[in-house]
């Protein structure tokens, strides 16, 4: 069985394969595009976090992403990691890396995570323009090197923005050749979300159409993905739109259960309701689970859909409906189509 098959098999039994658990919204960096608003909710304490991990284990969830804010800003992070390992999760840690010193790397090595995923937004100047903290580039690069030295699997990822798009292909080569770790941001980093508090400020950093096309062409050329055009298969109309509330869920630092980071529910606190009650009964979760690709009336017959990464969360934010056409998804899909066309011409 492949991981994809396992995900579907669990989902059909009502079990989320993965949970993205936000442990804190505190962070030592101040990234310009960050989706977190300024309010810091009351975080669960160590025992409460471990209680949530018990619940996740009990419902059958096997993949656990620990994210922030910055997870290493929590003083009890090592205890949480050890508890998660003892609960036999496949652990993925999302971090900016800056707080990982040798001692912390040793603690991470002990819990044998599946992977540590670290964000890098450019070379020194650009990275620090984005993080707004001097010295953060060197701290992050040092963490990558320490972790790699401890044989911990590291993926580096980025967000594609006006500030950094032109140097990302170079950064990718630096990450792969000099830092000798995997690069994970070919297309995933293109979706820029609004802030949790509704502010659309991060949209300012989206690429223009022209920049998109150039970036996509450079990324395709570098990653030799042209032969796989189009990589995204045409999905059946009866398929789920995405994994939210189906194969995946999100938990906030104060213990609210959501279908996904992009879709925040209400009346969803694990302190007042059980996981199963929210997962099975909450109207938003039910609505998402019943949503099929064919329900997106505005997308029917779309010729760009093979290039499109449909995110119902983004559609909800942009258009107020989970099943609406998403203008940003359309723009990205058009960008990929044009980039493939240019690449084919170039290769011919």
């Amino acid at each position: 069985m492949t991981q994809h098959e396992l995900r579907l098999r669990l989902a059909r039994r009502g079990i989320p394969w993965t949970c993205l658990f936000e442990l804190t919204y505190r962070c030592n960096l101040q990234c310009v595009h960050c989706y977190l608003g300024t309010n810091n909710p009351k975080e669960m304490n160590t025992d409460e976090v471990c209680g949530v991990l018990d619940t996740l284990k009990q419902v059958g969830c096997i993949s656990l992403i620990l994210s922030g804010g910055e997870i290493f800003a929590r003083k009890d992070i090592v205890k949480i990691l050890q508890y998660a390992r003892a609960s036999h999760f496949a652990l993925r840690l999302f971090t900016n890396g800056t707080l990982i010193d040798r001692a912390m790397a040793e603690a991470i090595a002990q819990v044998k995570p599946w992977v540590v995923e670290i964000s890098l937004y450019g070379f020194r100047d650009v990275h620090e323009q984005v993080t707004r903290v001097k010295g953060s580039f060197d701290d992050t690069v040092r963490a990558i090197e320490i972790l790699r030295g401890r044989q911990i699997r590291v993926y580096v990822k980025s967000v594609v923005m006006k500030q950094n798009w032109a140097e990302l292909p170079g950064l990718q080569q630096y990450v792969q050749r000099k830092l000798k770790v995997q690069w994970r941001s070919i297309d995933g980093g293109l979706q820029i979300s609004p802030c949790d508090n509704g502010s659309k400020r991060p949209f300012l950093f989206r690429l223009s159409d022209r920049q998109l096309e150039k970036y996509m062409l450079a990324a395709l050329t570098l990653n030799k993905t042209a032969k796989r055009n189009p990589e995204i298969r045409a999905a059946g109309e009866n398929e789920h739109v995405c994994g939210a509330a189906f194969t995946a869920c999100n938990i906030t630092p104060s213990g609210e259960l959501n279908p996904c980071l992009q879709i925040r529910a209400k009346d969803n606190s694990l302190k007042s309701k059980s996981f199963t009650e929210i997962w099975q009964e909450h109207p938003l979760f039910r609505q998402l689970r019943s949503l099929r690709r064919g329900d997106r009336q505005e997308c029917l017959g779309c010729k760009d859909s093979v290039h499109c990464f449909l995110c119902p969360g983004m559609a909800l934010i942009e258009r107020g409906s989970l099943s609406a056409r998403s203008p940003e998804a359309c723009r990205l899909a058009r960008g990929w189509k044009n980039a493939y066309r240019l690449l084919d011409k170039h290769l011919a």
């Binding site: 069985m1 991981q3 396992l6 669990l10 969830c61 096997i62 993949s63 036999h88 044998k112 699997r153």
Partner: peptide, 28 residues
């Protein structure tokens, strides 16, 4: 230790992440 696992309805799901590349195969 570099293994994730769950027992669900009398069946065990094993996910290994040893080595350089994560294997896509899940063992039951």
């Amino acid at each position: 230790r570099d293994l994730a696992w769950r027992i669900i309805d009398d069946e065990t799901i094993l996910l290994s992440f040893r080595g350089k590349r994560v294997r896509d195969v899940v063992y039951t």
